Amino acid sequence: MTLRLATMSDLPIIIDIYNQTIPSHEVTADLKPVTVDQRRAWFLEHTPEHYPMWVVLLDEMVVGWLSFSPFYGRAAYAKTTEIAIYLDRSVQGKGLGSQVLKQVPIQLAKVGLTAVIANIFSSNLPSIKLFKKFGYEQWGFLPAVAELNGRSNDLVIMGKHY
């Protein structure tokens, strides 16, 4: 597994992998698939200098992505990032998420980020377990803030200082 900075030509596969998660109503708060055009500006907000996005490569094929995004958009939070990791369904449950999270401290140091926030639905037990495995703790809990497929869901905020 390797990481490579994402390029605009990767955006269609990034969107495809993201859209795979929507029907489960366990991973993202989007309720219907998004398009490349809808996400172009979002993609361009990720810069190698501060809030990068990478594609996850396995045997030189893109099988996932990792991004750091601004946490709250105010200057005092500039060293805090919201992390997102999405893997193609074909590679989920095979330890690739762990390999990606092992790379996070290395990548954080390159861009001067020191705190990581992960927003995870309480029903997404595999992701909560993965982040706990790497020392993330629950920093917050927002009960019943999302409605997915006719049922409410809690948001667990996991965090870690580096």
Rank of each mutant, 00 (worst) to 15 (best):
V55Q: 01
F43A: 09
P48R: 15
A41K: 05
L66S: 00
T47H: 06
Q38M: 14
T35E: 09
D37V: 12
M53Q: 01
S67W: 02
D30F: 04
T35Q: 07
V36M: 02
Y51V: 11
H46V: 06
F43Y: 10
P33I: 10
S69M: 15
P52V: 13
E60H: 14
P70M: 06
V36K: 02
W42M: 03
G64E: 00
V63G: 13
A41N: 03
M61K: 15
V56Y: 05
S67F: 08
L31C: 03
W54Q: 12
W54N: 08
V36Y: 03
L31G: 02
R39V: 08
P52L: 11
A29S: 15
D59Y: 02
Q38E: 15
G64P: 00
A29R: 14
Q38A: 13
T28L: 03
F68P: 01
L57M: 12
D37E: 15
R40G: 07
L44F: 07
M61W: 04
D59H: 09
A41T: 13
T28H: 02
H46D: 04
E60F: 11
P70H: 06
Q38I: 05
H50I: 12
V63K: 04
G64A: 04
P52W: 10
S69V: 09
V62R: 10
E60Q: 14
H46M: 08
W65Y: 15
R39W: 04
V34D: 01
R40W: 02
V36H: 01
L66G: 02
L31S: 12
H46N: 06
P52R: 13
K32T: 14
V56Q: 04
H50W: 01
D30R: 13
E45D: 08
F68C: 01
F43E: 12
Y51K: 04
K32V: 14
R40F: 07
E49F: 11
Q38C: 01
V56R: 01
M53A: 02
G64Q: 01
F43S: 09
T47A: 04
V56C: 10
S69L: 12
L66A: 02
W65E: 01
L31Y: 05
L44G: 09
V36P: 01
S69R: 14
D37G: 09
L44M: 09
E45T: 13
W65M: 03
S67D: 12
E60W: 06
K32G: 00
G64W: 00
M61R: 15
D30W: 08
S67V: 08
Q38Y: 04
E49V: 12
W54P: 10
M61Q: 15
P70I: 09
P33T: 06
K32W: 05
A29E: 06
P33G: 11
F68K: 01
W65P: 00
F43K: 05
D37W: 00
W65I: 02
Q38V: 08
Q38F: 04
V34W: 00
V63W: 03
L58I: 09
E60L: 13
P48T: 13
V34N: 03
P33E: 13
